[in-house]
C-alpha cells in the first residue's frame, strides 16, 4: 500500500446558502407525524370555526354575521397554534436531540436560528392566507344557504393587521423556544406569557395609579390589542415598540446569545 495523499480541507468551497437552510427548516416542520398533524390542524380548525359560524348564521338567522365574523372565529385557533409551531421548530433540536446533526452540518448557529425564524414566518403567512380563504368560502356558502346579504367587511388592511398580530404571536413563541430550548417548558411559558401576564398587569394597574399610566408602554399584550381592532394610532405603534423591546427583543437577544454559546449534547 502506498502512503495515502494527505487529506486537506477545502476552505474555498461554497457554504450552505440561507435559501437551502430555510427550505430544510420548512420541510422539518412537516415531515414528522406530529408536525404534519399540527399543520393540518390549522386547516381543520379553520374549517371547524367556519362551519360553526355558518351554523350560527343558519340557526339564529343573525344578519350581523359577516366576513369579519369568520375572520375573528378563525383567528382564535391560529393565535394558539402558530406559536406552538414556532416553539417546536426551535426546541425539537434540543428535546429530540436532532441538533447533534443539524449544528454539525451547519456550525453557524446564528444562520440556523435565522433560517428557522424565516421558515416560521412563511408558515404564519401561508396558513393565514389559507385560513382566510377558508373563511371566504364560508362566507359565500353561509350567505347562500341562509339567503342573507354577503358582506365583505374585512379588507386588506384588516388582514395585514391581523397577520402582523399573529406573526408577532408566533415570534413570541419562537423567542420563548430560543430562550428556554425545551418543548414542554416553552409551551407552558407561552401560555403564562399570553394568559397570566395580562391579568397581573391589570391587577397592578388597578392598585397603582403610577403603573396604570406606565402600563400601555410596558404591557406587550395590551399594546397588541389595537391590531385586532382597526389598527393602532401613532402613539399606540410607539407603545407596541417600547413594550416589544422589553418583552420580545431583549429576551430574544439573551436567548440567541445563549444558543451561540451553549453546548449541544
Amino acid at each position: 500500500m502506498t502512503a495515502p495523499a494527505p487529506v486537506t480541507i477545502d476552505t474555498t468551497r461554497p457554504g450552505v446558502p440561507m435559501s437551502r437552510l430555510v427550505k430544510v427548516e420548512l420541510r422539518k416542520m412537516f415531515n414528522t407525524r406530529s408536525g404534519f398533524w399540527l399543520m393540518m390542524s390549522i386547516a381543520i380548525l379553520a374549517t371547524i370555526a367556519t362551519v360553526v359560524v355558518i351554523l350560527v348564521l343558519a340557526l339564529a338567522d343573525d344578519p350581523g354575521v359577516t366576513y369579519a365574523s369568520f375572520a375573528a372565529a378563525i383567528g382564535t385557533p391560529m393565535a394558539v397554534l402558530l406559536p406552538v409551531i414556532a416553539i417546536l421548530a426551535v426546541t425539537s433540536e434540543w428535546s429530540q436531540r436532532t441538533g447533534l446533526i443539524t449544528f454539525t452540518l451547519v456550525p453557524h448557529r446564528g444562520q440556523l436560528i435565522a433560517a428557522k425564524a424565516i421558515a416560521a414566518v412563511i408558515v404564519a403567512v401561508g396558513s393565514m392566507i389559507l385560513a382566510m380563504a377558508i373563511g371566504a368560502v364560508g362566507n359565500v356558502v353561509g350567505t347562500l344557504i341562509v339567503g342573507s346579504d354577503m358582506v365583505w367587511d374585512f379588507g386588506v388592511k384588516d388582514f395585514l393587521l391581523i397577520l402582523l398580530a399573529n406573526t408577532l404571536g408566533l415570534l413570541i413563541g419562537f423567542m420563548l423556544g430560543v430562550l428556554i430550548r425545551n418543548s414542554a417548558a416553552a409551551i407552558v411559558a407561552y401560555f403564562v406569557y399570553s394568559l397570566v401576564l395580562p391579568g397581573l398587569f391589570g391587577l397592578l394597574a388597578s392598585i397603582s395609579d403610577w403603573f396604570s399610566d406606565v402600563q400601555p408602554w410596558v404591557d406587550f399584550n395590551d399594546a397588541q390589542t389595537p391590531l385586532f381592532d382597526g389598527g393602532p394610532s401613532g402613539e399606540q405603534w410607539a407603545q407596541l415598540g417600547t413594550s416589544g423591546i422589553i418583552w420580545f427583543v431583549i429576551p430574544l437577544a439573551v436567548g440567541i446569545w445563549a444558543v451561540l454559546r451553549s453546548e449541544v449534547k
Partner: peptide
C-alpha cells in the same frame, strides 16, 4: 471546524445514533 464550508461534504460525523426525531422516517 467552524471554518469548514459545507462541513458535511468534508467530514462525516456520527455522535449519537439515538439522537434522532423519533417521528421521522
Amino acid at each position: 471546524y467552524h471554518d469548514i464550508p459545507n462541513p458535511g461534504t468534508q467530514i462525516g460525523v456520527l455522535l449519537d445514533a439515538s439522537a434522532q426525531h423519533a417521528g421521522r422516517t
